[in-house]
Design a protein around this nucleic acid. Structure first.
Lengths: 198, 198, 198, 198
DNA sequence: GATGAATGAGGATTCATTCAT
DNA sequence: GATGAATGAATCCTCATTCAT
């Protein structure tokens, strides 16, 4: 009985994984809108209904792909958040850049218009923004207005992410190291200056 | 003959203007995808076919709305590009922030998933990026690698634009002046630092 | 499991048949262009999407109607191709004339401008032409140039088909027997003479 | 006053000619359905309205192109109809084949689905059929049933026309002389045999 | 849990034709 | 006679989602 259950569970997990992989591949290749639920199911070797059984709808699948794909990265960044500002921000930029290089497809999906439309992109950006907000408040103290701090943090995240997106999409020959250098310096310069005046 | 021609031309221009206005209003209100060609035409008081006659298709209308809407801003920014770096970048940030405040609708359209999908957003970002590239090269000279300069410039533009977009969408109570201050300082800090190391 | 599958398959086949019948009826009645996909689906008692699910598009349905409708005829003609030339050609003409009389609607569809445009008519004509080519080569041997033989065969097929089409469309009072006599004699005369000179 | 009128008339005739030529060229190149009234007008250097002024509608233009294009041919064939059967039919086939070779575009238009749909093709076929009917009745006398004679004549015309159409469309390397030989023999054989039995 | 045939609302686009100038 | 901007009815086709088996 137990082994049967386990077999079922394993099969269920396996099916889920195949849908996730097929979805990630197709979304990255053809864009989210141009990918149909039917095609994902076909490539995963299951029926369309199964996709809906597991993820509710197409956006549900997209959301899970994005969230699970980014989860490890965000946790690593949270761990890196403990050091000095300099060390920490360098580590975080490195993590982002390396992640983007190794998961180009996922990054494309993250900035797909459809991901933006359903708010999945914004969710990730929000979580990234919190790191910057904490750092900024850590420097400036309670004197700073929260909405201004949030705006600044958000803008810095926008800078790094936009740079990374540009890189993977248009200039993949640029080395990761150089990209990280540039983005780290941009972020540090921006942070220092804004922390000074806020 | 001449007056006839002019009457027709006037009517044509008038029709075009009405379509542009109806489109801009609806795209901003309901989002681009949710707005149908038929509804734009109805609000403009013309037949659907007329929209296609003037703009080829829905994307054509969108593109023209964006390009014409942003043209004045970009020209003003080009004019502002002549002063010292400090003066110039402050003016450019002010122009952007003020423009966004007065054309909130257009900004929403500019970052609409559909605008992104057809590349119209990227076109505007490109033109903005050129200003930053010029400035960066003006500081660093020919020593800097063009692709690295472009990446840095693009990232800075992404920072400012993302900040502005966040502001008009989520925190419109923040004053334009404060937003400009923050974004100007972020940009300046980023630029100084990156110019130093490039 | 098996019966489930069969039930589904049976339903699928049934749906397909209904679409085929509705399409054949409407195409013959009103012409292909004047028949909308929506109307075919309505008469078949299914949704429009179902038509597209089964046949890809309207032309797909048209093609299948024509191919399946003509398949039996062409196979019967292939079987008849074995006897002496005289016997065989008489049988083939009879098959064609009788088929046309019993499937007037299908013949109308076969010569519908839309069928011509998508090449379905030409496909059928091609298959009919091969019979004549074989016969002609059987008589003249390898001496004859293939392109000339094909042209002659094609022209003969054009003669018979055009005659039949004219008959069912303009002069259906003429008896099938008389039509077959005339066409058979025309074909035989043409064949004899051309075989002699080629 | 008179010269003004003449100038106007000349201009009118000139406009008409340009529309006819542009229409013939485009219909042949892209097919009738795929050619829009607006494009014909543009290529003719006039406004769309002018096309409608001269020809009523798109089909009107098509009809005139076909009729005027074929008129000379039909008159030449009528003149050739006087000799002995052998001489006459050879001349007529030659006229058709030579005409097709020199007016490939027009022939394509003549067999365009749209020409068929509006009956223009049938009109030409009818006129050609009359020649054959006359010849057949001349041979068989009043004994033959008119509907049977017409069917036979029509079928022969279908044979020649189909052969020619096939030639110009698929096998233009075949020499006109060879085509005429084949079609002449086919027609003669068919005619002799059918005249014998009718 | 899995299946996959069926759904049908929904929108973009075309283009022959008109008519006020 | 010529113009050409405007018309708008008319269809095609898509595809996320459901639900009976």
């Amino acid at each position: 009985m137990d082994s049967t259950l386990n077999a079922r569970q394993r099969s269920r997990i396996e099916t889920r994984k195949r849908l996730l992989q097929a979805g990630a591949r197709l979304f990255a290749q053809k864009g989210v809108s141009a990918t149909t639920a039917a095609e994902i199911a076909r490539q995963a070797g299951v029926a369309v209904g199964t996709l809906y059984l597991h993820f509710g709808d197409k956006s549900g699948l997209l959301r899970v792909i994005l969230n699970e794909g980014v989860e490890n990265l965000l946790q690593a960044m949270a761990l890196a958040a403990d050091g000095s500002d300099e060390r920490c921000s360098r580590q975080q930029v490195d993590l982002l850049v390396n992640f983007a290089e190794k998961n180009r497809g996922l990054c494309m999906v993250l900035f797909d218009p459809e991901s933006i439309r359903i708010g999945a992109t914004a969710d990730v950006m929000d979580r990234l923004t919190r790191f910057q907000v904490d750092r900024l408040l850590g420097r400036c103290g309670a004197a700073v207005r929260p909405d201004q701090a949030y705006l600044a943090a958000r803008a810095m995240v926008g800078m790094v992410m936009h740079g990374i997106y540009w890189w993977i999409q248009h200039d993949p020959k640029l080395e990761a190291r150089a990209v990280a250098d540039i983005l780290y310096n941009l972020r540090t310069g921006a942070m220092d200056k804004v922390a000074e005046v806020l």
